[in-house]
Design a protein around this nucleic acid. Structure first.
Length: 258
DNA sequence: GCGACAG
DNA sequence: ATCTTGTCGC
């Protein structure tokens, strides 16, 4: 007898393979290739510069694996002021299986982003940060890639913990490299099987010794991804996802949950 | 066979 | 993801 989760793994892995053919791992937008921002390009039209960065996250209630709060926020770049927030309760019916986070969470978040694309293009983000991985994934199709491909726009994955990937072992030298990072902005490449660069371990700020793990989602180079993440850092976690996390937690508490 | 494994 | 208070330091 085959277990239910084993069935899902096969089906979902197939879907990931399908989406992977559409994955773009380079800069495709003007603001990326020219590093144009609202600060330095005042002569360019709005859509040519980086002005808004999105962040998504989902928070849960204790003792409840189904009811959760999905959050999507947009921060103005580079001051990180929140200009848009979309919070709502959702029911997560799919199980969490490491390596398949997207199938549990992506749909709810995609829906919110599409809604803003219809309602208010003026503040639609040029790139979205995700709580989780992009390329740094056993099949190179983490949540950030998954959402990026479906929406066909730039995405970046930012994880707080390292996901197990073939060829990437956390041995002494790995831990040593982490210890050697001293300043905010210090980083090293995560090289896995076949010398594949999956992403970066990044010490995001001076105070936080624990790194975050940055990887390409879609339509962005690793270098630009790091640049965007660092520009969004006030604390360990970049502001867009950090704010999404805060708002969704507050929402749950105000709903009498938690 | 056992352990590791984003949120 | 979530369970959880105080506490040390700037």
């Amino acid at each position: 007898m085959e277990s239910v989760t084993e069935e899902l793994r096969k089906e979902w892995a197939q879907k990931q393979l399908e989406l992977q053919s559409k994955l773009i791992l380079e800069d495709t937008q003007a603001w990326q290739t020219k590093r144009i921002t609202a600060e330095n390009d005042l002569g360019f039209p709005g859509e040519e510069s980086l002005q808004y960065v999105g962040g998504v996250d989902i928070s849960f209630i204790k003792d409840d694996n189904v009811n959760a709060c999905a959050a999507f926020v947009v921060c103005r770049f580079p001051d990180m002021k929140v200009v848009h927030r979309d919070l709502s309760m959702v029911k997560l019916t799919k199980p969490y299986i490491a390596g398949f986070l997207a199938f549990r969470e992506a749909d709810f978040l995609i829906e919110k982003i599409e809604k803003l694309r219809r309602d208010n293009l003026k503040i639609f983000p040029q790139v979205v940060l995700v709580d989780g991985n992009g390329l740094l994934h056993p099949r190179e199709m983490g949540l950030a890639c998954h959402m990026g491909v479906i929406l066909d726009m730039p995405f970046i994955g930012v994880a707080k913990n390292l996901l197990h990937v073939p060829g990437l072992q956390r041995d002494v030298e790995f831990k040593d490299k982490i210890k050697q990072m001293e300043r905010g902005g210090d980083s090293f490449e995560l090289v896995g099987q076949f010398n594949r660069v999956y992403g970066l371990a990044l010490r995001s700020c001076d105070d936080a010794p624990n790194p975050i793990y940055v990887s390409q989602g879609h339509r962005i180079s690793l270098e630009t991804a790091k640049w965007v993440v660092m520009k969004c850092i006030k604390y360990r976690i970049p502001e867009p996802t950090r704010k999404a996390d805060h708002f969704s937690r507050d929402f749950l508490r105000e709903q009498g949950k938690r």
